[in-house]
Write a protein that binds this DNA or RNA. Structure first.
Length: 362
RNA sequence: CGGGGCGUAGCGCAGCCUGGUAGCGCGCCGCCUUUGGGUGGCGGAGGUCGCCGGUUCAAAUCCGGCCGCCCCGACCA
């Protein structure tokens, strides 16, 4: 059929933008780099989020929430960290109609404010390991934004942990990389990933080692999909986090931080989408089976509803499409664009013959 | 921030060079027709032509300034 989208071969970036628009996944916000996530994409994100959350909790980490606004001075406490993030900070200078005595920054990531509190909560080796995770939005003033892949504001999960040894922190950072990130990417997103250590240049600002999961996209490029960092003791020193060890000595804990974001939706689009549109991995698909009433007829609506009920009873997320005022071709194209894994078409002809058209899109 | 391009209806664009009633496609609304892969027909709604100023009898069009956006580069989850 004549493509609704620019083909991937012709212009991959253009195809990417087309799918996002036509499948109604997201749009640009009024402020440069911001993004409106539309219901279909958000529903996929929610499923991805819960899959990640489950695995994060399985490591023993617990969810918490820290403020969006951070005193600028906090950022300055860790030299390399502030140097890395300063160029992309959004800074609030006014509040309540008056200039603030000290500007506050909108979090670009939360190492600093989390550590300000970890310092208060850790005083004994018995308090460790401390394993925290937060689901939040962060802001980084990006020069060249691209929907999902690099937006000025994005949704993510950021973990922050403290341990009694470098070895334990190292092991935990890798556990997140393997058991949480790679596992979710492979099993939920159905994207094979390459795990490895980031180069010195790409290392997270303030980390000693950065580990990354990179996935292969259909344009032949790799995309960083999740990172896990060993922070050493630099943040602990910067924020004065110390604990009394078994031997009575005061020591700084060894820390990690790790994150994945709505960029994963961009990865899903680029790793699975084709010239007909998006293809959503079945485990993440908000609708796994779309049942289309192809044409009105005696008993067709009832048969379609019976199929929906049967699928639902078996734990399959199924949705009825009986919008007969919209042409069948149009509806088929729309479901293809949105990437629903299985489509069933049912009409009087099928009913009479005791069959149904089933199309897979996985 | 450096290089290039573009701002005209919700979206995508033509018109600008050569000033003279603001157009096309898609989408939207109504009616009819159709419906098994983006149906077809008829009718309709919708625009301070990015903003400010200048030239002119007359500016989307010419001139000046400003603002915004997109693409490439550098930076980045």
């Amino acid at each position: 059929m004549a493509g609704v989208l620019t083909s991937q071969a012709q212009d991959f970036p253009r195809w990417y933008q087309d799918v996002i628009a036509k499948a109604q996944l997201a749009e640009n916000g009024p402020v440069r780099g911001t993004m409106v996530i539309r219901p279909w994409a958000y529903a996929i994100w929610e499923r991805l989020q819960s899959a990640l959350d489950e695995r994060i909790k399985a490591t023993g980490a617990r969810n918490a929430y820290f403020p969006l606004l951070i005193p600028e001075a906090y950022l300055r406490r860790e030299a390399e960290h502030v140097e890395g993030f300063s160029p992309e900070l959004a800074v609030v200078t006014h509040g309540g109609g008056k200039a603030l005595d000290e500007p506050v920054v909108v979090r670009p990531t939360s190492e600093t404010i989390v550590n300000a509190y970890i310092a208060r909560w850790v005083s004994s080796y018995r308090d460790l390991p401390l394993l925290l995770n937060q689901w939040a939005n962060v802001v980084r003033w990006e020069l060249r934004p691209r929907l999902f892949l690099r937006t000025s504001e994005f949704l993510w999960q950021e973990g922050h942990t403290a341990h009694t040894s470098a070895e334990e922190a190292h092991a935990f950072a890798l556990r997140i990389l393997d058991d949480v990130y790679a596992a979710t990417m492979v099993n939920e997103l159905a994207i094979p990933v390459y795990r490895g250590r980031k180069t010195e240049r790409e290392r997270f600002a303030g980390a000693t080692v950065s580990w990354s999961c990179e996935g292969a996209m259909r344009d032949g490029k790799a995309l960083q999909m999740g990172t896990s960092h060993e922070l050493g003791q630099s943040f602990a020193r910067a924020f004065g986090t110390q604990y009394a060890d078994r031997d009575g000595e005061l020591r700084h804990p060894w820390q990690t931080s790790w994150g994945t974001s709505t960029r994963l939706l961009g990865a899903m689009i680029m790793a699975h989408g084709d010239d007909a549109g998006l293809r959503v991995p079945p485990r993440l698909a908000p609708v796994q089976v779309a049942v289309l009433v192809a044409r009105a007829g005696e008993g067709v609506a009832e048969a379609a509803q019976a199929l929906i009920d049967d699928l639902s009873a078996h734990g399959v997320r199924a949705e009825l499409d009986d919008a007969l005022e919209v042409s069948l071709g149009r509806r088929i194209t729309d479901w293809e664009l949105r990437g629903v894994p299985v489509r069933v078409e049912l009409g009087p002809r099928d009913l009479a013959a005791g069959v149904a058209v089933v199309a897979r899109r996985v």
